[in-house]
Amino acid sequence: MDQRVNRLERQSHDPEIDLRTALDKEMEPASEGSSPRGRARPWRLYGAVLAALIVVGAGGWWLWQQFTHVFVTDARVAADIVAVSSRVPGWVTAVEVIAGDSVRKGRILVRIDDRESRLLVQELDAQLAGVARRREQIGARIVLTGRQTESRITAKQAAVRAAAAALAAAAAQRDLAKTENDRAEKLAPSGAITRARLDQTRTALETTKQQVLSAQADLENARAALAEAEAAREELTVLQRQLAELGPEEQRLRAQRQRLALDLQDRTIIMPFGGVVDQTFVDEGEYVTPGQRLLMVHDPERVRVEANVKETDIRFFRPGKTVTIAVDALPGQRFPGTVTRVGQAATSEFALLPNPNPSGNFTKITQRLPVRIAVQQVGGALKPGMMVELEAGTGE
């Protein structure tokens, strides 16, 4: 080694040549193909070139995507989450479900104590039954009174006719007696009839007059009795009015019963639609008030995506536009979606504390508008609240 160094030092005419570099060149073999290290260098070069091409291709693809597509990261899966509340107060006697249960439509969720409501319904049922009995009773009285009144009126009408006939007969007897008495009064002065005969005619006339008066009195009594019998028909009118008053009373009782039946029905909280239970807020034994939230449920088949899109990109999200949805929780899966609605006002307009900027200091901030996108549920994988990303093309 020392001899080789000395030889290189003697052969060097330039004092600035690095001895170590010369030594390395001296140690290299004449042919690179004959050494394993020499053979590895081309492959490393090829690998570096390939990596550079991949990086350049990926960068080009990224640039192409940025120029031809719009990406929205402020988006979530949403659904109509319904808060199930109680319309009536009471003690919770049973909670039939827990959070995460899949529940069909009409299944019982919560039961509230209904003992008092059942008793009130039974009380109104009894009152309605009493109204029905009273209606039957008044109806029977109307039939009986009607028949009795008609019979009495018929009898009194016959009595009036008989009294009228007796009055007519008495009047005829009176007229006959008056005629005989007048004849006797004319013959008596001439002595054609005796004094006794004259007295008889006078007595007969007076008797017939009294009979006429009696017949007139009987006729008046018969007519009065007929009027009384006909007045009994007013009792039928009173009974009919009593029967008619039962209608509104029964209607009022039925309305009260329907209201109590509704109260009784509302003490059993049922599932309004087929879906899942998101959360429960009450336990058995708690006292709930009207309007208190008991559970939260939603229909997993009716999900959507809601996004807040920059105002500079909103033109690419017209209704009917097809977009691509990527869910953070489902890497590698992409879902197609369709824009169904674009908000007519920026989200800042609905802020709790809007900024009217009265001072004049202005910082321009890109606003966002709400966009709703329809998406098809896939086996219940899309759940409300999941973060998603949207990709929409900028071309027509």
Rank of each mutant, 00 (worst) to 15 (best):
G360C: 10
R133W: 08
V160H: 01
D18A: 11
T338G: 08
R87L: 11
A52D: 11
E206D: 09
L23W: 15
I108C: 06
A22S: 12
T201I: 07
E396Q: 08
Q11C: 06
V276F: 02
R76E: 13
P384Y: 04
T68R: 06
L205R: 08
P29D: 10
A170Q: 01
A177Q: 02
E349Y: 13
E185Y: 10
G146Q: 00
Q216H: 06
S102R: 09
G337T: 05
V297A: 05
R315M: 13
A40M: 10
A155V: 12
D182R: 15
R372I: 09
T340L: 11
G191W: 00
R252H: 06
L246N: 06
S190G: 09
Q292T: 05
D328G: 07
L353C: 09
K364E: 12
T363A: 09
E206F: 08
K209N: 10
V92G: 05
T340H: 04
Q157W: 02
A172P: 00
L176V: 07
I270G: 00
V84N: 02
G106Q: 06
A78N: 12
D18I: 01
V327N: 01
G275P: 02
L390Y: 00
R318T: 09
I314D: 02
G393Q: 10
E16V: 14
W62Y: 15
T207H: 05
L390C: 00
L120H: 10
R174H: 11
L167E: 12
A232D: 15
A329N: 08
E349F: 13
I138L: 14
L243T: 04
D2S: 12
E286K: 12
R4V: 12
I138W: 07
L213W: 07
R267W: 05
K186I: 12
I269C: 00
R252K: 08
E349S: 15
A224P: 04
T21I: 13
D299A: 09
E250L: 08
F316M: 07
A177T: 01
N308E: 11
G380Q: 11
E26S: 14
T203H: 13
R134I: 03
N181L: 14
I270E: 02
G146T: 02
F335I: 05
G47D: 11
I269S: 00
A155P: 01
P331W: 03
T280W: 00
T201A: 14
T366Y: 08
A261I: 04
L264I: 04
E306R: 13
F273V: 03
R107F: 12
V339R: 04
W64I: 04
G320W: 10
V309E: 12
Q377L: 01
L167K: 09
G337K: 13
G379K: 07
K156I: 02
A244C: 03
E123Y: 10
H298W: 15
